[in-house]
Amino acid sequence: MIIAAPNIVTLLLAAIATAIVCSVSIIALRPLLQRYALARPNARSSHKVPTPQGAGIAVIGATLLIGGGYALATGAAPPALLFVATPLIALVGLVDDIRPIPVLPRLLLQALAVGLVVYTAPDDLRILPIPLAIERTLLLIGGLWFVNLVNFMDGLDLMTVAEAVPITAALAAIGLSGLLPLPATVIAATLCGALLGFAPFNRPVAKVFLGDVGSLPIGLLLGWCLLELAWRGHVVAALMLPLYYLADATLTLLRRMLRGEPFWAAHRTHFYQRATDNGFTVTQVVGEVFLLNLVLAGLSGASIAYASLSAGLVLLIIGVAAVALVLRRFSQPREARASRGG
């Protein structure tokens, strides 16, 4: 399906404006975050010194302000309830950053935010040939998992940037080709800009963290953009783009469940966390994740270009193999790999 494509110059300007607004907002907010939202290191942390968290306020605020304004100006605004659901889940994250919310009410509030996006979409937007109610319920469960896995994976300096920038840039490029609706294209481009504006403050050693107030709504916005891509028939591309996060978080969850561990509790057993314990530097980990995501973005683009089920499956298998290779590298001590010539 070909959709009217946005203007590349104005889209790029919107992304740059979002980056600037985000950076200025972080500078303005940092003294308050330093005072009221300090993340102190513990046994499960990757950081060593108390660091302010909550820069997600600037990332999400800039994305909704510039992205929403651009979309309105072009007459193609995102669904109104997206602008309700995103602040709602950000507020849940903000409260949880300051004073942890019990698991059940936290999940229910997150499910409410995801449900506002999923259940209010037009009925003709479908992925599977199954009853609509069942598909939307599956999307609710998947969306709830997605926002949480983005949160779980935000445990290392620049990790969310290394994951989300390639995804959002790829989505914006797909939108410029007329294969993604303008609202999703604009949100992807401006979220990419916001994360680039956040990156200088989060590079190792980070001066500020996103916090749950950032990671949860980033997961919601990314999930919505990917869902819009899947609704347009590009399911393989929508799975390929976040494949590293899906694999790392899901395999870690299953491993913890099989071991009888409290999988809902904070921990340091994700593959990227094990990598730092195995001798990788933070820069090496996020660098490999970033390069992997560039590969996945290329494969997702190829799956759209070839537009055939067989080609899509082959490309997806290649993507799975690439992710598996990185996960294997992360799970082994660097000394052990060096002794085998790896």
Rank of each mutant, 00 (worst) to 15 (best):
Y245I: 01
P31H: 10
I66R: 03
L13H: 07
N7L: 04
L125Q: 15
G342L: 15
V235P: 03
L316I: 05
G260C: 01
F271W: 00
A77G: 14
T185R: 09
L216D: 02
G219L: 04
A247L: 11
L72F: 15
P78N: 10
P262F: 11
V118F: 06
L221K: 00
R40V: 15
A17F: 12
V117S: 07
G93C: 15
I141C: 05
I16F: 13
V84T: 09
A39Y: 10
Y244N: 05
L104Q: 07
I27G: 08
L112Y: 10
G287N: 08
R126L: 06
K48L: 14
L104N: 07
Y244A: 05
V186R: 04
L243H: 02
N151K: 11
A113D: 00
F209S: 07
V314F: 15
I57E: 00
G260P: 03
I98M: 12
D124C: 03
E288Q: 14
T51Q: 07
T74P: 00
G342I: 08
I66L: 13
L210Q: 11
V285F: 01
F280Q: 00
V118N: 00
F290I: 02
A302R: 06
C22Q: 09
G301C: 02
N7W: 05
I141G: 04
L139T: 07
D212V: 11
R340I: 10
L158M: 15
A238E: 10
A58P: 04
R40F: 09
A170M: 14
S308H: 08
S215F: 03
E335L: 10
L132N: 10
G68L: 12
L138P: 01
P50M: 00
I218F: 10
L82S: 03
V150P: 01
L291N: 02
G219R: 08
R256I: 02
I318L: 15
N278A: 09
V186A: 15
S331N: 15
I89A: 07
L179E: 08
A172Q: 12
L210W: 12
N148D: 09
M1K: 11
T160F: 03
P242I: 08
P200D: 08
L180H: 04
T18R: 13
V117G: 02
R329K: 14
A321R: 11
R268T: 03
W145N: 07
V235T: 12
L251Q: 14
Q110S: 12
P122A: 08
I130A: 13
L138Y: 04
R99V: 13
M257G: 00
P166L: 05
Q110V: 14
N278I: 00
P166Q: 04
H270Y: 06
P50F: 06
T190K: 03
L88Y: 10
L216H: 12
L292K: 05
T250L: 03
P183H: 10
S339Q: 09
R259S: 09
L216Y: 13
G68C: 07
T18N: 13
T250S: 15
H47N: 14
A111F: 05
I130G: 13
L82D: 00
I60P: 09
T276K: 02
A237T: 12
A305R: 12
R35N: 06
P87E: 12
H270K: 09
D248G: 03
P200W: 06
A297K: 08
P131Q: 13
P200I: 09
D97S: 07
A238G: 09
P87C: 13
P50K: 06
M153R: 00
